[in-house]
Simulated assay, not measured.
Amino acid sequence: MSNLSLSPLFRRSIGFDRLNDLLNHAMQSDTPNYPLYNIEKTGDHNYRIVVATAGFNEDQLEIHLENQVLTITGKSVEEKSDTSVEFLHKGIADRSFKLSLRLDEHIEVQRADYENGLLKIELQRVIPEEKLARQIPIGQKVTQQLTSPEVK
């Protein structure tokens, strides 16, 4: 599936050229397996990202949003290892991480909470009024409709 052609889409659509870049990035990127996370749809315009961050304190976690890329980082504090302990099995991951997720242009971060080892980030799709469906009048410029009519 490395030769995905979006030419049929571009024949009937305008402005979707970024979609090709997004799909190429998704096909080339490895899916991170640490930390574990969920992406949940909680309503028509509401989403939640839940990241399992057991072993981290709030001050070890950072959330950064730049150019519609949400980046969650966890910085593990190196503790002095007890030399008297021998691990027979070490299954608890205690390492730093960086998780990046691309957001749609109208998705806004509403809040973030940390409870019981889970980082929860609430998102909402906020569509500006100028992007909502509207009737376009024929024979006059759209900008004229927004201004008050001149009195003659």
Rank of each mutant, 00 (worst) to 15 (best):
I121F: 02
Q144K: 09
L119P: 00
T147Y: 05
H106S: 06
D113M: 01
Q140M: 12
I107A: 05
L132W: 07
I136D: 01
I136H: 09
L118E: 10
T147W: 10
L118R: 09
Q124S: 10
L146S: 07
N116K: 13
V142W: 14
P137N: 01
I136L: 06
Q144F: 05
Q145T: 13
D104K: 15
I121N: 08
I121E: 09
E129D: 04
V142Y: 14
R102D: 14
H106P: 12
R125K: 09
Q124N: 10
T143Y: 04
N116H: 10
V142F: 14
A112I: 04
Q140K: 11
R102V: 14
Q144M: 06
Q135M: 00
V109G: 06
L146T: 08
N116W: 02
S148K: 11
Q110V: 15
Q140D: 02
L123G: 01
Q140G: 01
E115S: 07
I138P: 11
P128S: 12
D113V: 00
L132P: 12
E129T: 08
K141P: 04
K120I: 04
L103I: 12
Q124K: 15
N116S: 04
L103Q: 10
R111V: 00
I121V: 09
V126E: 03
H106V: 06
A133I: 01
K131W: 01
R102L: 15
L132N: 05
Q144N: 07
I107V: 15
I138N: 13
I107E: 02
R125I: 00
A112N: 09
P149I: 03
D104T: 10
E108H: 15
P149E: 02
Q110K: 13
R134M: 07
Q135P: 00
T143A: 05
V151K: 15
L118V: 02
L123V: 00
